[in-house]
Amino acid sequence: MIEYIKGNIAELSPASAVIDCNGLGYFVNISLNTYSAIQNLSSVKLYIYEAIREDAYVLYGFADKQERNLFILLISVSGIGGNTARMILSALSPKELANVISSENANMLKTVKGIGLKTAQRVIVDLKDKIKLTDGSGSAGGIVSQNSEIQEEAVAALTMLGFNTAASQKVVFAILKDEPQAKVEQVIKLALKRL
Rank of each mutant, 00 (worst) to 15 (best):
M1Q: 13
Y4M: 13
I5V: 13
K6Q: 15
N8R: 13
E11I: 04
A17C: 00
V18E: 10
N22M: 08
G23Q: 01
L24Y: 15
V28M: 08
T34R: 08
S36R: 13
I52Q: 01
D55V: 13
D55W: 09
V58M: 13
V58H: 09
D64L: 12
L70W: 05
I72M: 06
I75V: 08
I75L: 11
I75K: 14
V77D: 00
G82C: 05
G82V: 02
N83F: 05
N83G: 09
I88K: 04
P94N: 00
N99R: 15
N99T: 14
E104S: 09
A106M: 00
M108K: 10
M108A: 15
L109T: 08
T111P: 06
G114N: 10
G114L: 00
I115S: 09
G116P: 02
L117W: 07
T119G: 06
Q121H: 00
R122Y: 02
S139M: 07
G141P: 08
I143K: 01
S145F: 00
I150K: 10
A154H: 05
A154P: 06
L158Q: 08
L161G: 09
A166F: 14
S168E: 12
I175H: 01
P180A: 06
Q181I: 08
K183V: 12
V187D: 05
L192M: 01
K193Q: 10
R194Y: 08
